[in-house]
């Protein structure tokens, strides 16, 4: 083996270690030991992941049936249909809002805004992502539930959650559009495209997969977060027929189990089922993000070279 082939991964290979002696041997041994110690960190981090996944599935699956998805909650029994419906309605509306605000703002930041405005807008986008979820919950509670007089409602929950999700959509849109290769712009304009034609037919198509990963990612975050919804959407164990009534969601059901002293027996089972369902949905979205970004990477490989 020649030294020229020694890529980073090749350093500290068995062969080198066998040939080395003295101080170099000690250094190589130390290097390997560190490698194993660092690997141990994964055990610390992955144990909670697998334990949570196992614990939730083991408690949820035996009690789950078709009725879990289709029946209303009755007392401490029944199914989770109202909360599943509520989750889909609220996360769906929130996604629509986040896409509307985030894509528009990202588009203008990347393509139209003068550099100083774009800089300010990017800083603000990161700041918005840094606002704690519960603070957004307070914002939604006071502005929509109290001052606007909507009471606990699906709409108030969806708007609050949408604002929570906006910065992620915004930032991915901005990055995706800003990273469209210059050659694409020049080629489009050279062929006589108007600027808006270039944006709509060239730039946006190249950026779309990245924007979609951002949207899925924001949805996964929104599904898992109870803090913005607890005081805006409230809770309801019946399916909703309009957007102004209190609405139950999966993440709030899980919290209700904890908060309720009498929450054992079947109600506990409901909480586990809700946890299982939200994990499954979130993991599904994660897989979608992964597949999308893989496909995207393959597709772009040609574009960028």
């Amino acid at each position: 083996m020649t030294t020229a082939a020694a890529a980073p991964a090749g350093i500290g290979d068995g062969g080198e270690l066998r040939r080395a002696s003295g101080r170099l041997r000690r250094r190589l041994l130390f290097d390997r030991a560190i490698g194993w110690i660092l690997l141990a960190a994964f055990a610390v981090v992955l144990f909670p992941l697998f334990d949570m996944l196992y614990w939730v599935s083991a408690n949820a699956l035996p009690t789950m049936s078709w009725g879990t998805l289709t029946e209303n909650q009755v007392g401490t029994g029944g199914g989770l249909y109202p909360m599943i419906q509520g989750t889909f309605v609220i996360v769906g509306l929130a996604t629509a809002l986040a896409v509307g605000l985030g894509v528009a703002a990202g588009f203008y930041t990347s393509e139209y805004a003068p550099p100083s405005v774009a800089r300010l807008a990017r800083i603000a986008g990161n700041l918005l992502a840094g606002v704690p979820a519960i603070v957004l919950g307070y914002f939604g509670y006071f502005l929509l539930v109290i001052y606007a007089g909507w009471g606990f409602s699906a709409l108030a929950g969806a708007i609050t959650l949408g604002i929570f999700m906006t910065p992620y959509v915004y930032r991915t849109t901005d990055v995706a559009l800003s990273s469209v290769p210059k050659g694409q712009r020049e080629a489009a304009l050279a062929l006589g495209a108007r600027p808006h034609q270039y944006l709509g037919r060239v730039a946006f198509r190249i950026a779309l997969p990245t924007v979609l990963t951002g949207v899925f990612f924001a949805m996964a975050l929104g599904l898992g977060e109870a803090a913005p919804l607890y005081y805006t959407a409230g809770f309801n164990s019946y399916p909703i027929s309009n957007l102004t009534s209190p609405t139950g969601t999966l993440s709030v059901v899980i919290y209700q189990f904890y908060d309720n002293p009498a929450s054992f027996g079947h109600f506990l089972a409901l909480a586990f089922q809700a946890a299982f369902l939200s994990i499954v949905i979130v993991l599904g979205l994660n897989v979608a993000v992964q597949l999308l970004s893989d496909r995207y990477r393959r597709r772009l490989r040609g574009l960028y070279q």
Binding site: Y108, S110, Y112, V117
Partner: peptide, 27 residues
Amino acid sequence: PSAARGSRWAWIGSPVALIPLLLVVAV
């Protein structure tokens, strides 16, 4: 982005770009 600036839709520009800022201020 001189190609895009000054074109159709440019007039809505800055306020839309600053949506995140408006939201932080509103909160």
